[in-house]
Lab assay of single mutants.
Amino acid sequence: MDVFMKGLSKAKEGVVAAAEKTKQGVAEAAGKTKEGVLYVGSKTKEGVVHGVATVAEKTKEQVTNVGGAVVTGVTAVAQKTVEGAGSIAAATGFVKKDQLGKNEEGAPQEGILEDMPVDPDNEAYEMPSEEGYQDYEPEA
């Protein structure tokens, strides 16, 4: 019985440690998101679009440190934060509304985080759909 109880105690310690790591990862992701939003706020009209992409990228980098179902929630929060940063930029006159959601080359930025393969159960990952990809044929 002692062996059984000791095993359960060790398992509990492992769960607590994993929860603490997840909590730490979420806190880091939130900190990076805040950094990115402050970065966007300090940019001029020309830099705002690039700044919004930076927020998304920093958040995406930190999301990889967070495991399990938390990833889905962090990704949703990050996307809403990026959308909010863009709205703030438009409201303050840093950028025109028609410039939001495009990178410096004018290509749409939507789907940055949505296409990231995420499995809350950590069982399997699927690649994003290939609808947006084109076949590449090298020139002879």
Rank of each mutant, 00 (worst) to 15 (best):
V71H: 03
S42R: 14
A89W: 14
K80C: 09
G73P: 05
E83T: 07
A27P: 00
V74I: 02
D98F: 05
A124S: 11
E104C: 01
V118D: 04
E123M: 12
V15I: 09
A29S: 02
G93K: 06
G101H: 04
T81D: 02
T72I: 15
E35I: 15
F94G: 03
K80H: 10
T64H: 11
N103H: 08
K80R: 09
P108C: 10
V16N: 06
G68V: 10
E20R: 06
K10L: 14
N65M: 05
K97M: 05
A19F: 08
M116L: 07
A91L: 09
A30Q: 01
D115V: 12
E105Q: 11
Y125W: 04
V77Y: 14
K6Q: 02
N122P: 05
G101A: 07
G47D: 11
E123Y: 10
G41D: 00
Y133K: 01
A30H: 02
V66D: 01
V37K: 01
G14F: 08
K21L: 13
G73S: 10
K12Q: 08
E137P: 05
T75N: 12
G41P: 00
D121N: 03
T22I: 09
Y125D: 07
V16H: 03
T54W: 08
G31P: 00
T72K: 06
G31R: 14
I112K: 03
F4R: 00
E131D: 15
G106V: 06
G31D: 07
V95Q: 02
V52P: 01
P120S: 10
H50Q: 11
T44K: 01
K21D: 00
V70N: 01
S42A: 13
M5Q: 00
E83H: 09
G7R: 15
E123H: 09
A91I: 03
T75A: 06
V77Q: 02
Y39E: 02
E35L: 14
V49G: 06
V118T: 02
G73R: 07
K21H: 03
G132E: 09
L8C: 01
A11M: 14
V52I: 04
G101N: 01
P117T: 12
K32M: 09
V15S: 00
E46Q: 04
E13R: 11
K80G: 03
Y39H: 05
K45P: 02
E130V: 15
K12M: 12
T59E: 00
V95R: 07
P128C: 05
G14I: 15
K45T: 11
D119C: 12
Q24C: 04
E110C: 09
V70Y: 05
Q79L: 07
G67T: 12
D121L: 12
V95T: 09
Y136C: 13
E123S: 14
T92K: 02
S9C: 08
E61C: 07
V82K: 12
A56W: 13
E110Y: 06
V95I: 10
V82R: 07
T54I: 10
V26R: 00
T33P: 00
E131P: 14
T75F: 08
G93Y: 02
V48D: 00
A53P: 01
K80M: 07
G36L: 15
Q134G: 13
E114H: 08
E61N: 07
P108R: 11
E83N: 07
Q62N: 08
D135L: 12
K80Q: 06
E105N: 06
N122A: 03
M5T: 01
V48F: 13
V52Y: 03
G36N: 12
Q79E: 03
V40S: 00
E130R: 04
G67F: 02
T72M: 12
A124E: 12
D115E: 13
V16R: 10
D115M: 10
V63H: 01
A124L: 07
A124D: 11
K96E: 11
P117I: 03
F94R: 01
E137R: 15
V16Y: 11
V55I: 14
E57R: 05
D121R: 03
E35A: 04
S42V: 11
L113Q: 07
S9L: 12
E126L: 05
N122C: 03
A69H: 05
G14M: 12
P108I: 08
E13H: 03
A17R: 08
L113G: 06
G41Y: 15
A76N: 12
V37N: 00
I112V: 15
N103W: 11
N65R: 09
K12L: 13
A53M: 03
K45N: 02
K21C: 03
V55F: 11
V74Y: 05
Q134W: 09
K34F: 07
V15G: 00
P138N: 03
A17C: 06
A19C: 06
E57M: 07
S87L: 12
D135A: 02
E57Y: 13
G67L: 15
V70H: 02
D119F: 03
G7D: 00
D135F: 10
Q109L: 07
S9R: 08
A53F: 15
E57D: 12
L8S: 00
K34S: 01
Q134R: 13
L100F: 15
A107V: 03
G47S: 11
K23S: 02
K43V: 11
E139S: 08
E110A: 13
V77H: 02
T44I: 11
G93V: 11
K32C: 03
G67M: 14
N65S: 12
A56E: 01
P120M: 10
V52E: 00
M5L: 00
T81Y: 10
A17Q: 07
K102P: 10
E130C: 09
G14E: 13
K80N: 05
A90H: 06
E20C: 13
M1W: 00
Y133V: 05
E114W: 14
Q62K: 06
K60L: 14
Q109N: 00
K10W: 08
E123D: 11
S42H: 14
G132L: 11
L38H: 06
G106L: 09
V77R: 08
V66T: 03
T75D: 05
T92G: 08
F94V: 03
E137V: 05
D121Y: 08
Y125C: 07
K43H: 05
A85L: 15
A53R: 15
E57T: 05
V49S: 13
Y125Q: 06
A78L: 11
S129G: 09
G73F: 08
Q109V: 15
K23Y: 11
S129H: 07
Q79C: 11
G51K: 15
M127N: 10
G51H: 15
Y136G: 04
G41Q: 12
E130K: 10
L100K: 02
T44P: 01
Q79I: 08
E126N: 12
A76F: 15
Q62S: 12
A27L: 15
K102H: 05
T44N: 01
V48Y: 07
P117M: 11
G101L: 09
S87K: 03
N122K: 15
S9E: 10
A17W: 11
V77P: 02
A30T: 03
A85Y: 09
E61K: 06
K12Y: 05
V95G: 13
Q134N: 13
V15Y: 03
E126D: 10
A19G: 02
V3Q: 02
E20F: 11
G51Y: 13
V71I: 15
T54K: 10
K97I: 15
A29C: 10
G36R: 14
Y39M: 12
Q79F: 06
Y133Q: 13
A78F: 13
K96N: 12
G84M: 15
G67D: 01
P117G: 13
K58S: 07
V48T: 02
S129T: 12
A56D: 01
A17E: 12
V3S: 03
P117D: 12
G68W: 12
K96A: 14
E35Y: 12
D98C: 08
P117V: 13
V95H: 14
P138I: 04
V66Q: 02
Y133L: 15
A29V: 09
S87N: 15
D98V: 04
G67Y: 13
V66N: 02
G68P: 06
K32L: 13
E131N: 11
G132D: 05
V77K: 05
V70P: 01
A78I: 15
D2E: 01
V55C: 06
V3G: 01
F94M: 06
A17G: 06
E57L: 05
M116T: 10
A17P: 00
A124N: 01
E110N: 14
P117A: 04
Y125L: 11
K97E: 03
Y39D: 01
G25V: 04
Y136K: 14
G84H: 07
